[in-house]
Amino acid sequence: MAETETSLVEAVRLALRRALAEDETVLVFGEDVARNGGVFRATEGLFAEFGERRVRDTPLSEALIAGMSVGVAAAGFRPVAEIQFMGFLYPAIDQLANHAGRLRNRTRGRLSCPMVLRAPYGGGVHAPEHHSESFEAMLAQIPGIRVVVPSSPARAYGLLLAAIRDPDPVVFLEPKRIYRALREPVVDDGAALPLDRAFVLREGDDATLVAWGAMVRDCLAAAAALAAEGLSCEVIDLASLSQLDEATLLASVEKTGRCVVVQEAPRHCGFAAEVAARIAERALLSLQAPVARVTGYDTVMPLPKLEHLQLPDAGRIAAAVRETMSYR
């Protein structure tokens, strides 16, 4: 099978196409996803190939998109719906929290909800107000759903296929900042990657960098820069925020003794806090320094002129690692 240099958004499209082709019950719908191919072109060509029965434009109606996903999923289909930007996903939280995450449990398995809700998320693309949000921690606290965040084209392909094939609801957050920022070979072989699993992207002994989504790239850049200073950093892409792969996280921290957690969302009650808490609960005696967080500030996501202040970058991450290394 040929490997093709593929961007993350193209990998999403490959996975959607593969899922539509292999399973007649898969439905793709959302705002502008059919004739227009999605505002980021993630669904481009799918309408032409599979028709309106399978790939359909909905009205502009986010609560509805989430709610009808619950309904059509429970009635035997596998909806893969798109929320155009994460900033418009708030109305869908009612459906995720009150229904998608509960339906199997409250009917003791009689009805279930194999749905995927995709949304581009995060900042760094100079987008208008409300188009750069990242509130993944709010979603990760909802029982009964999974929150999955790819950080590379290959992981986008494999994790989205896994999400679609999973019998339970998944929110799939796509870091739009890296939709086209990097290309790597992706084999369209239909092979899924495991959910609930973190990925060790770079091995190292001095400190562990933990991130997800677009921040993974900045962590890798920081690790490369720090290597030139003689510091060896391990980089972990959590990929699944729920369910969290605690074992991979703890094994790394037990090895390095130092950890920096990076997120672009505001700091207070962010997912980095959960990561830090797990380490404090389970690996405290392995630590040689306090767990550090590099995060957005506890303020509203700035408009593009100032958004660079809010978003962590490789420089801030490297500085945090050096600070961590100062504990002896």
Partner: peptide, 14 residues
């Protein structure tokens, strides 16, 4: 009213 969207999802499936 949170179940009204479910009904149209079910209706679509039907």
């Amino acid at each position: 009213a949170s179940h009204v969207p479910h009904a149209v999802g079910v209706a679509w499936a039907l």
